[in-house]
Design a protein around this nucleic acid. Structure first.
Lengths: 196, 196, 196, 196
DNA sequence: GATGAATGAGGCTTCATTCAT
DNA sequence: CATGAATGAAGCCTCATTCAT
């Protein structure tokens, strides 16, 4: 299992730093190798090509986050609590690793369509988590029965994503995780409104 | 004034088509020139460089849209109506020009940080429109006084943007503008909730 | 027509010189460009890629030789005279351009199979010329009716080719074209022998 | 003596197979090692470098063939019989090991000049065998006194080589060894013709 | 104003070889 | 003897931009 070898994560962590510091288009393989303390060729022992490094980066970092959220979220019961946990974990996760936040919110978005499609595959699990919360909320009566789940999911994800991106673009001039409550409040209102 | 010369818009329209068809990274200057029916060098008579074409593209297309929204929005009175108009104009504007939607939602996002910052400058006017609606809504009592305008704006823009992007990525399999009402409803609920 | 532009042949001639001097595996595109007095990128205005330069080189040089042989060969009548002309033209053509001889006999043979197959396509016309001579000779009674044309062609081409290659590998220590008569004599004997 | 250790021939045989299957330029050391069932580094215990593997391959395979021919050829007496034996042994040797034929006729020819020069060293013994046959033939009166031995040798080797190469390139669609008689006949005629 | 031929910098990837175990 | 993880040099090609006509 590649990911158990130390150099695998070593290279991924180096990629995050190099991309955050130099930008996506100035993150040459040689820079990543240097940052990771390995030879250029070594990267190709662990990754198929440069794109594979970037996909793996996203899979490892977001994947591990999504897994943790999936596990922890079942520990609270109401949809509201779960949504709050989702928002707060999301904010505190990216707030704790600014480089990673820069990479996921700004840099990785300039990758080509192919790479972005693969990134979206990873995100699908995240969107499913949101859908499950919404579904649960409808069942418990916290959300109206006719809530359009797809639209509500887009609102939730779009809001969270836009909030993080704005925070990153403002150079973390304020505490991201302090916004959790307010964002949760806005989104709960959005979802809970009585039917049209 | 450059923009009054026919070839100026001719080149911008060509850029939209070429980027939509070939993707951002395959939209070479020579392709745009060919599509516009001019020589490569001619582009440099109207634009400083390639980046300038893309910024101008965004400025012209979004700029004219924002202007129109700004004008029309004062014709209705409540914040709710104005928000509805904003959403609906936004959706119908991009639904009426799929190439442009592909370019703004998918392709132009792969540009480098600098270009994206300039694009954000253009968007600032749009965000100001949203802020004005929210401000107005607070004054008229439609929204609670303690509404966090920045967060609410992020929710509104994030939701609209995410909705359009999803629609584009789904190859316009449904009518985007039919979502206006529901999105408006979700966002109004989000903004109107009574204070924490 | 690309081949009418001066730079087309300029690049091909440069390629012959660079390959002859540095060997096939040390004939970098940048060296060829420098020798041709053009920028690296200019080569790609006239050729699809590096391989295309090499194929074109062979096509232009051998192609023009084969055409000339085809034209001149009809001016003499007997198969024997035609065979002599073929051998002599072949020898004097390569003797007059040692660089080209090095390239065709030694360097181009280290190219990959794909390239060699395309080179063989060019040679097919040459082999056809040989076959026509043999056919003619059988008709006129100069060669026995049961001459195996394929084998005879292989003997003729193999002998000529091996003779030139040996001459090149011996660093042209003797006059290649002085061998024409003797080679012709050997091959005529080979072909003319009475049936088994 | 290296060649007595089992892994020595094991690696050479693996090289033949790997080159025949993948082509010269896709015959990486790691592939040869894998095919031989040894580690990459082990190859360097038996060979100085990759080139040494290829030279040794040629030396072992052709060397053992040439030795056998040298021994057997003295068992027949006339130059004609010896030439026939040479041709027939050559054809049947390569017909019996198609992989080896592919490697010697097609793949190894793409090697660089240095390697080919070393391969030619091995071939010198073979050419000497031909020369001896010719010399003997002149002494016995089978060939004219003024036969140009070098040219005759080139004809003989060129014809045999071209015949095998054509057979390999035609994917052994016919029996190579069935050509022995005809080729022998052609070459005997070529050499025996009365003086100019 | 318009053309389009020419420029040339810059990076991903392969693979023969080494050497610590 | 044997292993195989690690090394790092080296080159083809693209494409934004220029400038002579």
């Amino acid at each position: 299992m590649k990911r158990n070898k130390p150099k695998y994560m070593q290279i991924i962590d180096a990629a995050v730093i190099v991309i955050a510091e130099n930008g996506y288009h100035n993150a040459q393989v040689s820079k990543i190798a240097k940052q990771a303390g390995v030879a250029d060729g070594t990267i190709y022992l662990y990754f198929k090509n440069k794109e594979d490094v970037l996909i793996s980066l996203f899979q490892e970092k977001m994947g591990q986050f999504i897994e943790k959220v999936q596990e922890e979220i079942v520990e609270v019961n109401t949809a509201s609590e779960r949504l709050y946990m989702l928002i707060d974990k999301h904010f505190s996760f990216l707030a704790s690793d600014y480089s990673l936040a820069v990479v996921t919110q700004l840099e990785l978005r300039q990758s080509n369509k192919e790479l972005r499609l693969k990134i979206n595959d990873v995100l699908k699990d995240y969107l499913t988590v949101i859908d499950t919360i919404l579904q649960k909320g409808i069942e418990t009566g916290e959300f109206p029965e006719n809530l359009d789940i797809r639209l509500a999911r887009q609102m939730i994800f779009g809001t969270i994503d836009e909030t993080v991106t704005t925070w990153v673009m403002n150079d973390q001039r304020y505490e991201l995780s302090e916004l959790s409550k307010k964002v949760h409040y806005l989104l709960m209102n959005g979802c809970s409104g009585s039917p049209l």
